[in-house]
Nucleic acid binder design. Sequence first.
DNA 1: CTGATTTTGACAATCATTCTCAACTGCGCG
DNA 2: CGCGCAGTTGAGAATGATTGTCAAAATCAG
Lengths: 132, 132
Amino acid sequence: MKRNTWQREAVREALVTADGFVSAQSLHSTLRDGGSPIGLATVYRALSDLTDGGEADSLQSMEGEALYRACTSGGHHHHLICRNCGLTVEIEADAVETWATSVAAANGFTQPQHIVDVFGLCAACSRAAADQ
Amino acid sequence: MKRNTWQREAVREALVTADGFVSAQSLHSTLRDGGSPIGLATVYRALSDLTDGGEADSLQSMEGEALYRACTSGGHHHHLICRNCGLTVEIEADAVETWATSVAAANGFTQPQHIVDVFGLCAACSRAAADQ
DNA sequence: CTGATTTTGACAATCATTCTCAACTGCGCG
DNA sequence: CGCGCAGTTGAGAATGATTGTCAAAATCAG
């Protein structure tokens, strides 16, 4: 049976509050800084539960750590992520979906899964970078 | 100055010999099994040199480890990878390139980079899976 | 060959993530 | 309301990939 604990809620809320992708580690520090004595292992467990349950998305940053985000649209989608501030835009890409499926089929591959993510600098960070 | 050592050559050759993506770890064991007393650190160094020099591609597997492959075409391309046997097909995808660039621009993002890889089961492994 | 400089490799150090396990707690039942 | 127990927590250990350290060994130009 699945229980409701304040820890799970805290993680869910922290995820929603952060408006971009965050690593499990930084989510944990944020919670600790906010006064919760929540454990790191629990944050990881809560995050993977949320991911499994479809309430959150996860992806690997270019530096290799796993990032998480509360996902707004239930369906399948991809992301455009600012590699400086973490700001994220969800993008629909039917074109890419069908391309992936057909390129897989054309080469005899079955059960295609794909990883498609775009990283860049958002408008604000681009400006900041130009200014410096 | 860059020197030529048999270790670097061994890594380059092992990479070419393997016909799909391999992890640094398994490349290391392969070399050791083949009789080379090469060190793990050296394999990692050689691989990142090759990657920097454009002689190899690297990507993150779905399990989180870094995989490497000798790349045949010099240009920018993506991959279709069998998640069972590692067989890899290089795919050109101008459509995806331009899509990524334009979707980034449309949202005010600059300096777009993208990760686009397709995993699946190759024909042989699909058959094997069906048989089991 | 010689000397300077790069490279190597055993091992320690890091870092994210997962595991372990005893203590704890939400929740249904009486 | 109080019990009991299965799901949950959390501190710390364990894991596993990757990177750093540094003395010893190897490379290459002259």
